[in-house]
Amino acid sequence: MAAVARVTPAADTDESSLIRAAAGGDQRAFEQLYRANVGRVYALCLRMTADQMQAEECTQMAFVKAWQKLDTFQQRSALSTWLHRIAVNEVLAQKRSDKRRRNYLEVVEELPAGTDVDTRVEVSGSDVDIEQALQSLPEGARQVFVLCVIYGYTHEETASTLDCAVGTTKAQLHRARKLLQARLN
């Protein structure tokens, strides 16, 4: 299990100049951007993949792609937000290409629109317990839970990102919730 730590945010004033320098080919500037953001990107990849090696690979590829596209980054959003999108796409692309992992079909019953899940259960456990419970979820349920709950995507955004129906994301969230509830209590 990876060490869990909070990252001190990089100073915004420095970030713009680092982005400009990196876009001009300055690898040292890009390394500083990497150091400031790798924790957030890796956390996302680890939570999405539940696999340390895949998370490392996705993190590395996300930064390589960010380097390749840095001159297209307009700084209309935060760099961390931009990197987040690249990392999500990288995780999903690697999942799609890794057919060896797809030797089974996961059937999920869709919930009708407007269906809410019953909640109100107190949760105990350390951050490590919580992360481990998350990693134990089936892939589809985990990805929906990570995007919807931890990163605040709407169901529509999650469905669009994962290329599935909104009903499917609701069903997966419901499923994830029930599994997590059982594991943490």
Partner: peptide, 28 residues
């Protein structure tokens, strides 16, 4: 939702166990 709130309070960042930069730099 208490369950959701607990997950939302997780750290935003997790540092990888090893330094990923050298391999990234090679790919750059």
């Amino acid at each position: 939702d208490p369950l959701f709130n607990r997950f939302q309070s997780l750290p935003e960042a997790i540092e990888p166990e090893r330094d990923l930069w050298p391999e990234i730099a090679t790919r750059l």
